[in-house]
């Protein structure tokens, strides 16, 4: 578990934590890519949506042979459910699409589970990524 300053410039610290933990546990490259992407999208959403939250966001990673559970915990924040974000219609032509809004769509696409819990100002976002045939 690590506490990361809630700034976009902290992303390198976030990636270093994930990659260090994954290397120790022989996690394959594709899964590491997916975890990095999910972590960045969720972390940057917390930074942007929970203005006024605490100075750090806590990130934990639990790696076992079947699956990886990654948890981001934000403190002193308002309730925000990433699952409530409208799905992006990726089949629309370019002229009808706007930049942005893709982050949660990508997370939902690359992880096996995305859940959210809020209690007394503390928000926890959890993603599960199955290791599948890559064990």
């Amino acid at each position: 578990m690590i506490d990361i300053p809630r700034e976009i410039s902290s992303l390198s610290e976030l990636f270093a934590f994930i990659e260090g933990s994954c290397t120790e546990n022989l996690v394959d490259e594709k899964t590491v890519f997916a975890l990095n992407l999910a972590a960045e999208e969720l972390f940057t959403n917390l930074v942007r949506h929970n203005v006024g939250g605490s100075d750090v966001i806590r990130v934990g990673l639990e790696i076992n042979p079947e699956r990886i559970e990654m948890r981001l915990v934000d403190f002193n924040v308002q309730k925000f459910d990433p699952n409530s974000v409208d799905d992006v219609d990726i089949d629309r032509p370019a002229e009808e699409r706007q930049p942005g809004g893709l982050g949660i769509h990508l997370v939902k696409s690359i992880v096996d589970q995305l859940t959210y819990a809020y209690k007394a100002g503390e928000m926890t976002v959890t993603v599960i990524k199955n290791r599948g045939e890559n064990v």
Binding site: F33, N36, L37, E40, P99, G100, L102, G103
Partner: peptide, 9 residues
């Protein structure tokens, strides 16, 4: 690596 932020640009 690229994320939604890079895709947006």
């Amino acid at each position: 690596y690229i994320s939604s932020a890079g895709l947006g640009v």
